[in-house]
């Protein structure tokens, strides 16, 4: 059974899949002379969490960055192939990455709030995109985002404190609030919990699980346990190839590919 077939058959198994949000076909990424991704094709469902796992340097972060064209900011990075969000091609010079990034939010490995107040952190996106006409509207967006990020109760009385004064887990949820403040359709998360302690991790995971109701979340993680806990779909990358993609439950109990099996059981030879 080939990988491509595995994707196709496995995809229809997942009950949560309502429709396809991101459709990727034949994506290659080159950094200068080096090819980082080889012919990746997959379809990512909406309103679910898709986890990318794989050893370091396998191309999973690179692939994640294709979805909001963050690779554009790297000199010499060339992305070819088709990336469609809701059927619209985004890997296209005519699509402005700034517009794209307004609908594809991103959360990074290390919590990186701006060294400004909590309010300004969340309000920054809506401000630069002009999403709020009045101060009241902006206040509303900030509150909603913080509520959605489960942070409102903890910070509502100190919105003017610097975002950097929060704890690591709170900072990461603040960053998530900042991402959802511009009302994105897809949220990308690059190892969002790797710098957090287990309790903070659990809170962020709970948040991700709640956000799944409304967003398409794509997450890179090094923790297979985390992928197993929060994701509905899991994709395994190795050496720039998409090796296996399917429902998380399947991947973690009965992976089809030997390499996936070796990786998740900790047997890499």
């Amino acid at each position: 059974m080939t990988t491509a077939q595995a994707q196709a058959t496995l995809y229809h198994d997942i009950p949560e899949a309502r429709d396809v949000k991101v459709a990727i076909a034949g994506v290659d990424v080159h950094y200068g002379d080096k090819q980082a991704l080889f012919d990746v094709s997959m379809q990512i469902p909406d309103r679910s969490v898709t986890a990318f796992i794989g050893p370091s340097g396998c191309g999973k972060s690179t692939f994640l960055r294709c979805v909001n064209r963050m690779n554009d900011t790297i000199d010499g990075a060339v992305v070819t192939g088709s990336l469609k969000i809701d059927g619209t091609e985004i890997n296209d010079k005519t699509i402005d990455p700034v517009v794209l990034r307004a609908s594809v939010g991103m959360v990074f490995q290390k919590p990186n709030p701006f060294p400004k107040s909590i309010y300004d952190n969340v309000a920054y996106g809506p401000k630069i995109h002009g999403l709020a006409a009045t101060r009241e509207e902006l206040d509303g967006i900030v509150e909603q985002s913080l509520v959605k990020a489960g942070l409102w109760g903890e910070v509502s009385d100190r919105l003017t404190d610097p975002g950097t004064s929060l704890s690591g887990g709170q900072q990461q949820r603040l960053v998530i609030a900042r991402a959802i403040a511009v009302n994105p359709e897809v949220i990308l998360m690059d190892e969002p919990c790797s710098a957090l302690d287990p309790i903070a991790t659990a809170k962020v995971e709970e948040l991700i699980d709640e956000l799944r109701e409304n967003y398409c979340i794509i997450m890179v993680t090094h923790s297979m346990a985390q992928a197993a806990r929060v994701s509905q779909m899991t994709a395994f990358f190795h050496l720039g190839n998409l090796v296996e993609y399917g429902p998380t439950e399947e991947i973690f109990t009965n992976p089809r590919e030997r390499r996936t099996q070796d990786y998740i059981t900790g047997r890499f030879g």
Partner: peptide
């Protein structure tokens, strides 16, 4: 200035100039 700040700004959709001058 850590690159994470630039990425954060770009990530919420700031243009390059905005990320430089705002952050």
């Amino acid at each position: 200035v850590p690159p994470s700040i630039r990425q954060a700004a770009l990530g919420v959709g700031a243009s390059r100039t905005q990320s430089v001058f705002h952050h």
